[in-house]
Amino acid sequence: MKELSLNILDIAQNSVTARSTLIRIDLEETNETLRITVSDNGCGMSKEMVENVTSPFTTSRTTRKVGLGIPLFMMAAEQTGGNLTITSKSEKDYPDDHGTVTSALFYKNHLDFTPLGDIINTIVTLIQGMGEIDLIFTHKSDTLDVLLDTREIRETLGGDIPLSVPDVLVWITEFLKEKYNIS
């Protein structure tokens, strides 16, 4: 992947597949580090699945027996000296409090750090494809304090208009650009 934001898009699709109703994407930056955390309230994974999920030969898809989403994300983190952790509570064991948290730490000054890339485009793409699911996105650093909560947007739009309407996506793009001070 050429951008970490593409990894984020890919990892967040797992939360969509896990039938989540709310996904959180949190980016926290210091001078040296970037932490990317994707959390959801989806069906979660069994202990066994969590243990094996970083292997390329573990996948939930049915078209073939390899899954590269998490291994690629982990590689991107580890090649900077960082790491990736996954914790999960399965719906079966935790009926009232289930979901998965995937968190990756990157060292930004490392030669092999992949740039974050077009995060706005990624968030908008995700919203375009996630139907009824809600998203909370935050990006915090010394100079940034970005917060997007699609539940607020939905409330203003009323129940009948999906977030995937082009006009709404344009609004979200402009909103995020403003938060990032891009004109």
Binding site: D160, I161, D167, V168, E178
Partner: peptide, 13 residues
Amino acid sequence: KSLAELSAIRDKM
């Protein structure tokens, strides 16, 4: 960007 603009989109749609 204001939520008022979203309301306008809602009314249009």
